[in-house]
Structures are given as C-alpha cells and as structure tokens.
C-alpha cells in the first residue's frame, strides 16, 4: 500500500511554473533598475547593484530552474473509488489521504496563464479542509472532477 501515488501532474506545469519564476525575476529586475537609477543619479552606494544582481541570479537559478523541477518531480496524486491521495513538497514532503466519503465538493479553476497552457487546478473540499492539485491537463481535470463528484457521497450525519 505504501508506494507513491501513481499519477503525475501535467508536464506543461513545468513550463508554467518557469513562467511564474521568470515573472518574479522580472519584478526583481524592475526594482534593480530603479536601484540602478538611484545609484546613477543620487550616488547610492554601488555595492547595492551587486546585491541586486546576486538576487536576480539566485532567483533565476532557484525559481526558474530548480524549484519547478523539484516540485514537479514530487507532485503525485491518485484517485481511487475510496480515497484520494496526494504527495507534494520540496523540502517537507507531505502525503495526504482523503477518504471519498469525506469529500463534499470539487471545483476546477483556471486563470489566464493556466488557460494558455490548457491547464487547470482542481480543489477538493471536505467539511474542514481544501486540497488542491495544481496544473492538471484541462481535460484530465474535467474528467477527474466528474468522477470524484460521482464517487463522493457524503455521509451527512458525520459532519
């Protein structure tokens, strides 16, 4: 019973997360340009530029390259008739088990970037918790949503 959950999330998630990382680095770049201007016009100390460059480099390595890769490798899920199992986390690996009878409702959501990559995020709600599987293939998510909601029959008096 204790193997990893079988399904991986879509490989396009990788590109999506890289784009997110790049956006983040872009914001830092804008800030650094502002700092650069300050150095140029008001004579702020120049080592600030070095720090800014360092941060951008670090961000490119971490949030564009390493983190998306590790995150994607770790993300696994499996939906059976009786339960939903999730595994995620880079440094702290979390494995979650949600029995099907506890599921109250399932939603899918899709932002503009996700739509561009034909991905969508599915969130599974119990009476007390919400569990998300990010960046699933659009159609897969849709099928999953349908199958979970047909499998989930909540025993009402338990809530």
């Amino acid at each position: 019973m204790w193997r990893e959950p079988a399904q991986r999330i879509s490989e396009r998630a990788l590109s999506l997360w890289r784009v997110y990382g790049a956006i983040q680095a872009g914001v830092t770049l804008l800030v650094s340009i502002a700092v650069g201007a300050a150095v140029f016009f008001w004579g702020w100390p120049e080592w600030l530029l070095a720090i800014a460059a360092g941060i951008i480099l670090l961000e490119l390595i971490l949030s564009v390259w390493l983190i998306p890769e590790l995150r994607w490798k770790r993300w696994r899920y499996e939906v059976t008739e009786q339960d939903i199992e999730l595994q995620h986390g880079i440094f702290i690996i979390q494995r979650t088990l949600v029995p099907m009878v506890r599921v109250q409702h399932v939603d899918t959501e899709q932002g503009p970037l996700l739509r561009k990559y034909r991905l969508s995020t599915i969130s599974i709600s119990t009476a007390a918790t919400v569990h998300k599987i990010p960046a699933l293939d659009e159609q897969e998510a849709e099928e999953l949503r349908r199958s979970i909601s047909s499998l989930a029959r909540v025993a009402e008096d338990d809530v």
Binding site: I92, Q94, R95, A127
Partner: peptide, 28 residues
C-alpha cells in the same frame, strides 16, 4: 469516521532516519 483528512509529513532530513509526523483534521 469523524476524521476529515490525514497527512504525514517528512522533511528530506528525516527521510534518512525514517521519521515522520502525522496531522489529522477534524471538523470544528
């Protein structure tokens, strides 16, 4: 029958020594 979901967590450092933490959620 009252437990809504359960999870185990493990940091990569705990992996070497086979330690895990458990967290269980009830509705409140």
């Amino acid at each position: 029958k009252r437990i809504q979901s359960a999870a185990v967590t493990q940091t990569i450092l705990q992996k070497r020594v086979d330690l895990e933490s458990i967290r269980v959620t009830l509705k409140s």
